[in-house]
Amino acid sequence: MKKITAILLSLLMVIGLAACSGNTDQNGQSSTEQPPAENSSSADAMNNESSAPTDSSNTPDNEDESLKVLVAYFSATGTTEGVAKHIANGLNAELYEIVPEQPYSSADLDWNDNDSRSTIEMNDPNARPDISGSVENMEQYDVVFIGYPIWWYDAPRIVSTFMESYDFSGKTIVPFCTSGGSGIGSSASNLEKLTSNAEWLDGQRLNGSDSQDTVMEWVNSLGLDK
């Protein structure tokens, strides 16, 4: 009888141990234990963040929104060229030199000679010296700076050739000049008459010796949306 009782007790112990082992997972951790609340919240937050749509409508596209600027210039002696390069460098703009088909010699530029080429051209309002080359895709530019020296109180006739060679409709044009003492005078308004449907800003006389900071101080005062 005692032997049978011992066997029954042993069976009960085995059954009890099996029941206890059924409440633990494969890693020995109780299946009733809950993960920390902050871990659950973090996971939910990550899921929500990853699934939320991204609104890119307010992301600025600087390349598309920035104005495209061209700095065109005529410079017989290199003075206007220096100023034009300051502007182009300051605005990261394209630079275009108005090159005459027939270059000007020193004799051509002798304003004391009534028979010099430049004197003859400036005495003829209809003179239009030929230009070598052209601006590619002029339509892409929003703002065009036009620079030139002052000859006989006006822009050289080759600049008139340039203005009549393109359609400046819808563009902003900014004239600038260099001279030994004369201001920009009516040179800009005379060029404006050669264009239509363009917005002309007030021009400025600059010195060939002006630093880039000085030149850009004027450019920045124009309020261009660059």
Rank of each mutant, 00 (worst) to 15 (best):
L224W: 06
R128S: 02
M122Q: 13
S160R: 12
A188H: 12
L222V: 09
D115A: 10
P60S: 15
S50G: 14
E139Q: 06
S66Y: 01
N197C: 01
I4P: 07
T54R: 11
N114L: 12
V14G: 04
T161M: 00
E192L: 00
L194I: 06
Q34Y: 06
N27A: 10
I173A: 03
S187R: 05
W218I: 04
E164K: 10
I98P: 06
S21V: 08
N197H: 04
P103G: 08
T77H: 05
D225K: 13
I146W: 03
A52D: 08
S186F: 09
A127W: 07
I146S: 02
I4C: 01
Q26E: 15
R117F: 07
W152L: 05
T172P: 00
K85M: 07
D154M: 08
T80I: 10
P53V: 11
A19N: 01
N220T: 00
E94G: 02
N39G: 08
R128A: 01
S40H: 01
S10W: 06
M1F: 14
D130C: 02
N58I: 14
Y153I: 07
P100A: 05
S56G: 05
S132R: 09
T54M: 12
G185F: 02
T24H: 11
N48W: 04
G147D: 03
K68S: 08
N137F: 11
T79S: 14
G78R: 03
Q26H: 06
A18L: 15
R128T: 05
F168E: 02
Q34L: 14
E217T: 13
S31Y: 04
E97M: 15
D108E: 02
T5W: 13
T54A: 13
Y166D: 03
D124W: 02
T5L: 13
S40K: 07
W111Q: 15
A127L: 06
L194G: 07
I98G: 03
P60G: 11
T195N: 14
N27S: 11
V83C: 03
E97K: 15
S56R: 15
S75H: 10
N197T: 03
C20P: 01
E217Y: 10
P129A: 07
M46Y: 06
S221Q: 01
D202M: 10
S42E: 11
E63V: 07
A88D: 07
R157K: 13
G183M: 04
F74D: 06
N89M: 04
N89T: 15
S56L: 12
V135Y: 11
D130H: 03
S160D: 15
D130Y: 04
C177S: 14
E164G: 01
M13W: 09
A88C: 02
N220K: 09
D142R: 03
R128D: 01
S105W: 05
N126E: 11
M1E: 06
G147V: 06
G82R: 07
P125S: 00
G223A: 08
V143S: 00
P103I: 13
Y153R: 08
S182D: 09
A107D: 14
N89S: 15
I7Q: 02
M163A: 04
S134V: 04
M138W: 12
C177R: 07
E136L: 14
E199H: 07
V14S: 08
S169N: 13
Y148R: 10
V143D: 00
E136I: 05
D202R: 09
N137P: 05
E164L: 05
E94K: 13
K226T: 10
E136F: 10
Y153E: 12
S56C: 13
A43R: 00
